[in-house]
Structure formats: C-alpha cells, structure tokens
Amino acid sequence: MNNLRQTWQQLQQGMRRDRVFDFIAENRMPFRGQGHMALPGVVDVSHGTLLYLENVSVSFDGFRALNNLTLYIDDGELRCIIGPNGAGKTTMMDVITGKTRPDSGNAFFGQTLDLTRMSETDIANAGIGRKFQKPTVFPRHSAFENLELALQADRRPWHTMRHRLTPTQQLQIEETLHTIGLLAERDRPAALLSHGQKQWLEIGMLLVQNPRLLLVDEPVAGMTHQEMEQTAQLLTHLAGRHSVVVVEHDMDFVRSIARRVTVLHEGSVLAEGTMDEVQNNPRVVEVYLGE
C-alpha cells in the first residue's frame, strides 16, 4: 500500500516536472525543428516553472530541518511561505541559495540549473537574490554605494578595478533610492539608518541586482504599519517581472499580498492554496492553534 502511494507520488512529480512527455512535444526537443538547446547558465523556464524543490531533506545532528520537502514556484509568481518556528523556512532558503547542501533530493533553477551543485556566488549570478532575516547591508558604505555594489554588473575583480558608473546606471540607482524612500539618506553610512530603512535598503539592493527570483525572509520585521503597507505595495509590484518568495510571520501582511500561500510544518509542506483555503484547512488550524 505504502509502496503504491510512493509510486503514485513519483508519477505525479514526473508529470509536474513536465518532462515525461517532452518527447511528444516536437518543438521542445533540443535537436528537432525550431526547438532550443539547453544552454549552460541560462535559466530555462519553458514549462513555466522557475524553481523546483523535490524531496529535499536536510538534517542537522539528527534534527530533520527539511523532510521530503517538495515545492514548485512558477515564473513571475508571488508566493508566501508561512509556518511556525522551526518549520524549516530559513533552511529552505539556505538550500536554494547554496548555503546548505541537502542530504537528498533535487533543487533546480529552471529546468537545467542544478542548485545543489553550484556555489553561492554562481547561484546569485544565475539570478537568485536573497534578503536575510536580519537586515544585512554594508554598514560602512553609504546607501548609494550599497546599491552600486548590488547593481547588476560584471562581478570579476579585474572589472571592478576599472569600473565607473554610466549615467544610466547612476540614474537607475537614484530611481531605486527614490522607490525605497532613501533618497534623502543617499550619502549616509548604512549603519546609521533605522531598522526599517535597512530592511528597505536591502530590498533595494535586491531590486538593482535584478534577479529572476527574490527570496525575502521576513521583510516587515520591525516595521511600522505604514512602512508595512509600502512594502506590500512594492512586493506586489515586483511580482510578474520577478518571482518573489516571501517568508513572513505577520499574518495581516501575508493576507495583504498573498495570492498563493504555502504552509510549512516540520520540514515539509502541510498545505498550499489561497489564504482562505489555507486558514480553513483543519490541519493548519491544528498546527497553529495547537494541541
């Protein structure tokens, strides 16, 4: 019985990955007709899915932080991930960004990039940006310089030795400063910014980095109500051009932005759906309201 269920699950996943029937879809074959090749370093989202996490497990000293986690993020989607403490939200981000290697399972960015075999830097350059739970900006650099460092550009040492900002790039940074409301703080060291401003600066850094996928860990922690609304606006505005994954504790905030919500519990997906569906799910209620 158990075996049957496993097979069924595997079959489902195979369908989900859309790969099984590739041989039928003529124009998707790499070597036939007007199809495309799997190019190294290019994110292939021809099936509409940007991120694949499949059966990912991670243990720390016997503690299973992630337990057969399977999760898909579509291209251009805004997804919220909620879950009680220790549900594995941050570990999941660590796996995606290459900070933690999974014990088992797959993590693919597009259909071709195997995240479990790439370094943090490679992953970042492939187009995954991350905002940490605790705001981490470069404290000695001004807000402007923080954005300059994050700006999409050649990251190699030899290039940065001779690099100068073009007027377009300068303008882009100024515009982003305007978007995140830090134009007045342009030349202040980031260490002197308030907590909320640092959060925004970090989001701004993600913006100029222009990643395909943004991972945002608790963006509104320590923000006032008004700041929260602005953040919600910003994130919803971003979806479509980027895929955004938001991990957040604040339910009001999640409600205000979420189209689809995934609930994590003990390292795997407990429920997935709209906010209302999820909130009315008896298992979610049980986990959240507790024994």
Binding site: A124, V137, E145, E148, L149, R156, R162, M205, Q209
Partner: peptide, 27 residues
Amino acid sequence: AKFGRVIVAIRDAEDRARFIGYRVENY
C-alpha cells in the same frame, strides 16, 4: 575604485557580498 568598495564590503559582511554574487575568495 569599486574594487576597494567590494573589498571593504567583504570585510564588513562577507556573506552578503557572496549572496550578491561576488566571488569573495578571488577578491
């Protein structure tokens, strides 16, 4: 130069620099 700003960034927040996409060890 920008190189120097990356170097200081690595000193102050190495992980951040890495997740932005700088190859810290090369610098």
